[in-house]
């Protein structure tokens, strides 16, 4: 089943399912991501949330910002909680006890919950084939606890547990290629998205809900506090990440990779690709790279980004 055509004009009039009054930081990327994801829902929906910024700041008791049924259980188990929700709904439907024809199940996890502590639960849920949409809002560190490094933190970013010191220039390890790992699970739909491109993001969410079986959408969620930039630039960061190919936009339906949006345009017209420096220099977490002795690290990052981009082009058979 292919869904209705989504347009910004129509979606702008759709009531937000994440209400205002939540207490995420001013300019929070995760808040934009969650709003956009919920805008793209198509009917009865239940949301499960992993522990993290989104969870704590939207449900400070006795308040809640969620206009859909919502559950938070723990940090590492949102995929298994969602598995239980999906299985429960399936069983209730079979027994004739469900009043809906179908209920969509969305799981939200941050990078900590997804790359690290909850990785096993996601892998299990995807192997079992539960019909859930898992949304990774990736702010690239444990922001909720104060900017500690995660498996999703990019190389050389300074965090409170991978600080740029006199000897060590921030995180030494690469960002885990989480979405490709999810493609390797042979699930029907995997995509990346950026809040700078809302229509692309919402179309992917809708597609993720439409496919039968697990879907995974990896959405970059710039964090003004953790990345050290002025809150007004959240969308700019999300856009630069795509324009520099640090965070390309693609989707893989049944394992078949395809670039989307601006990334597709860059593939066709490589001149559009901006140098990573334009992205890095705007963020305090990379400030230490812009000294004469660390300059080569920027070059190294550029090399890594180029290699990964070329690999992706190959996967999309565009090179």
């Amino acid at each position: 089943m292919s869904g209705e055509k989504l347009s910004l004009k129509d979606l702008a009039r759709k009531r937000d399912l994440l209400a205002p009054g939540h207490r995420l930081c001013a300019g929070c990327g995760a808040a934009i991501v969650a709003r956009l994801v919920m805008k793209a829902t198509r009917g009865p929906t239940i949301v499960a949330c992993a522990t993290g910024c989104l969870e704590v700041a939207t449900t400070i008791f006795p308040y809640t910002a969620w206009r859909v049924p919502w559950i938070h259980s723990a940090f590492e188990n949102v995929a298994s909680t969602a598995s239980g929700i999906e299985a429960g709904l399936k069983a209730l439907k079979r027994a004739g006890k469900l009043k809906y024809d179908h209920v969509d199940v969305i799981a939200f996890g941050g990078d900590g919950a997804t790359y690290d502590i909850g990785f096993q639960a996601i892998s299990g849920a995807f192997e079992r084939g539960h019909d859930i949409l898992y949304v990774l809002y990736d702010n690239e560190a444990y922001m909720n606890t104060g900017i500690q490094r995660s498996g999703g933190t990019p190389k050389y970013a300074s965090t409170t547990t991978s600080p740029a010191g006199k000897v060590i220039p921030g995180k030494l390890e690469l960002k885990k290629p989480i979405s490709h790992i999810m493609v390797a699970h042979r699930i029907p739909y995997v995509a990346t998205a950026s809040p700078a491109y809302p229509l692309d993001l919402m179309r992917k969410v809708r597609r993720g809900l439409e496919v039968e079986g697990p879907a995974f959408i990896h959405i970059l969620a710039p964090c003004p506090r953790g990345w050290r930039f002025d809150p007004r630039y959240t969308i700019e960061m999300a856009r630069l990440a795509v324009q520099t190919c640090v965070f390309p936009l693609w989707e893989a339906e049944n394992g078949k990779y395809k670039l989307t949006g601006v990334s597709r345009s860059i593939a066709r017209n490589p001149k559009m690709k901006k140098p990573v420096e334009e992205y890095l220099k705007r963020q305090g977490r990379f400030r230490h790279l812009f000294t004469p002795e660390n300059r080569h690290l920027v070059d190294e990052i550029q090399k890594i980004v180029d290699e990964e981009w070329n690999w992706l082009l190959k996967m999309c058979q565009l090179s």
Binding site: I46, A48, I71, S73, A74, E76, N77, A79, S80, T81, A82, S83, G84, I85, E86, A87, G88, L89, K90, A91, L92, R94, K97, Q120, A121, S123, G124, A125, E127, R128
Partner: peptide, 24 residues
């Protein structure tokens, strides 16, 4: 019954939490 062959006991209880919360 919907049998979920989970990948760990942590997920077993987590799935039970999700299922019970939805009325199962």
């Amino acid at each position: 019954t919907e049998y979920i062959a989970v990948e760990s006991e942590h997920s077993a209880m987590s799935a039970c939490i999700g299922a019970a919360a939805v009325g199962a």
